[in-house]
Design a binder for these strands. Sequence first.
RNA 1: AGGCACGUAGCCCAGUGGGAGAGCGCUUCCUUGACGCGGAAGAGGACGGCGGUUCGAUCCCGCCCGUGCCUACCA
Length: 882
Amino acid sequence: MAELSKTYDPPGVEQRWYRYWLQERYFHADENAPGPRFSIVIPPPNITGSLTMGHVLNNTLQDILVRYHRMRGEVTLWMPGTDHAGIATQNVVERSLAAEGISRHQLGREQFLRRVWAWRERYGRTILEQLQRLGCSCDWERERFTMDDGLSRAVREVFVRLYEKGLVYRGHRIIHWCPRCLTALSDEEAIVTEGGEAGSLWHIRYPGEDGGPGVVVATTRPETMLGDTGVAVHPADDRYRGLVGKRVILPLVDRRIPVVADTVVDPEFGTGAVKVPPARDANDFEIAQRHGLPPLCVIDPEGRINENGGAYAGLDRVEARRRIVADLEQRGLLVRTELYRVPVRRCQRCDTVIEPYLSDQWFVRMAPLARPGIEAVRSGKLRLIPERWTGVYLNWLENIRDWCISRQLWWGHRIPVWYCGDCGAQTVARTDPDRCAHCGSARIAQDPDVLDTWFSSWLWPFSTMGWPDQTPTLRRFYPTDVLITGADIIFFWVARMVMAGYEFLGECPFRTVYFNAIVRDLQGRKMSKSLGNSPDPLEVIDAYGADALRFTVVALAPPGEDLRFAPEKTELGRNFANKIWNAARFALRLGADSPGLPEDSELSLPDRWILSRLQRVIGETRAALENFRFQEAAMGLYRFLWHEFCDWYVEFSKLALYGEDRKAAQAARATLLFALDRLMRLLHPFMPFLTEEIWQALPIAKPARSVMIAPYPEPESEWNDPEAEAIVGRWVELVRAVRNLRSELGIPPAAQIRVRIAPARDAGGVELVEPYLRALARVSAVERLPDGRQPVGEPFGTVEGVGEVYMPLQGVADVAEVRARIERDLKKVAAQLRATEAKLGRQDFLEKAPPDVVEKERLRAAQLGGRRDALTRHLQSLSGGA
RNA sequence: AGGCACGUAGCCCAGUGGGAGAGCGCUUCCUUGACGCGGAAGAGGACGGCGGUUCGAUCCCGCCCGUGCCUACCA
């Protein structure tokens, strides 16, 4: 900051200081360092691509907290890393291969995985660079990846432990199957379309075996009838009572299938009769199990009708549906077709319509794991912010279903299970076995499937710290303090981490979860990689600066709500950065020596005022940060720095700085520097680069080599000065009133004017305002009117708590305009007065309202009354005089 | 279907049981020695609708309308 450019220029500053911080290892958390600690793990970004604005907000908030706690002197760990993101990454790599005309099957598993690792190298680096450009103070010496050896060991340890406890099992069940990704999915990955999708409800007759009319079923997926092995009705449904136990004929395939009674059937829906294809629907599977109906699989993994589908074998599900409906219609068995909104689930990763599919998969029994997670929130040991998420969290845990963890993918942790070719038994092992644990056969083969990517993520808070080993890091930094993440992964990740934390370490992995805002575009769509509607954070940083971007997203993000972002909005932060820069520039050009704050007696009222105000802001900022009110903290600093420090204090200080009195000038400069020091520290977590650049340049005694390890300011009560706050507050209002009059009277900005002040009784300090009025409002002379004297024919303004300020017309104003203004004011005052008097006239108000409120209203009425009288007088005198 | 948020100035959003706010945009003016990424002064709002609680409601409660999100085995 040797030569002071007029505008703040981020790029060089950012690079220089980030390099310095790294070199000094300020980001590194030493587990051997004494004292209180603070730890937080990053929600590991997927390596599918570069970061979005959502990541910018999420990581900015984390960095704010981390830098705040570090400045408070805590040994602070921010654990960084990335997630292999199994299915998502496999898909993007497959897509990039497709662009070359290659499929993963052509490459083979080993070659394909090599390509994925290459991908991970590239995007892992990109993500790291983005976080660093943003200023994130992660402990990069500890960077982790979910497929690192250590983390993979944790995954295997967990699988084996759960297996040994009977909480991991292999089940033959209906799962969500993506016919495009060719893998099973968890319930959470099968996304329900809001409000359903356009479709039809087909009413189909299944004739009776006895030649009778049989039953009419209603279905939204007629092609599944090929797998029907029964029809279900409600036991209390009189329409079908005679049919229960009898059989009907499944059209097109001519299979005889029984009619059973089950209470899950809703007689009100459709025809009250449900076709039951056990292998094609999870509910039907359960009905079938209760009534001994055999499952019949009629679909292949790619969504085509298989050999069990008779004449329809080989057809794609969509085509099969079309043909079956046509055939039914032709045979007169299609009773009715109505338009209907059909609930449809789609693959989270490729949007393909999911098929319920009967297959062998691995599951985790979740109910036992959920209990401590429920208890943690109920007892308050774990706090969710905003609080409304606790209901969502509890509801999910209380109704939790088993978790399908096997995926028919290549990219991920292989399932540590080996099947014996001789005895058929399973061997589950922490280290790769070479023989069957049951019969000793060497003919064993590992399960080809991999684990759900979240099966490694749910261990993140401790697997990154070296678990299952009892490492010093784990002992020092687990459990973490806070998790900051998006509410969209509350089930995928947050709830499961809580469960894993309790199950494997007996402790909740964090005390507080803060859900940050969702970043949307101007149309309200969530910014995401798949939509491609997020600006590239690096481009925004290049255009506006990292501090500007950080500050802007925090300033725009209300707690727990969404935020609409567009790159141009970053002007807010850039302008603020520039404002701060110039305030510092102003202070720095006053001299290079280092004045300390003088005795209280040498400080001017404005000096004392800003120091006192500063203490309040320090307290408010700390309180806001403690309560995760990031926006409030940011905007509080914005307002104070811009609209109090710059707009008023800097202007007040010029009087002393450019004046004759050397001591007063030194006091003002010392005050400026003192305030800037505290402000740079307060603001550092939000705008790390700019604050470091300025702080380093301040000619003050520094408690540290970097602002990022300087103590975070604490309120110092010795500077509290209510008297100075009251007096200077009056001055501000007076200056405003004079400027206002000038503007309304059309007095040219350069013209000097005289004013007369009739101070209110309690307007202490007004007698000292003259020099400030001269400087800030171009007032050539201030006359103080004796008590009770009210000049006539002069426009005036009323300043609450100060009195009235009069301004002679001096022939420059348009009298008609002045009258119009007074009339307007009079109308407003009269209305307010009427309302207040009406209130005071009501008995119930006087009796029931608290005394201080009543007193306040009385005071107000008196003020308004005085003002009204004065305005009236002036109007009269103007009319007469003109 | 149920649940949860939100509905405040033209736009994006803060906020509080007793006098409606910031930012952007808009109008007028200002190249005064930190800053035009600036300064000064303004205009602009029945705080979604209807009831209720209260001396008093933009704020608390209920219902309704609108928007968004989440959950759900209604074929």
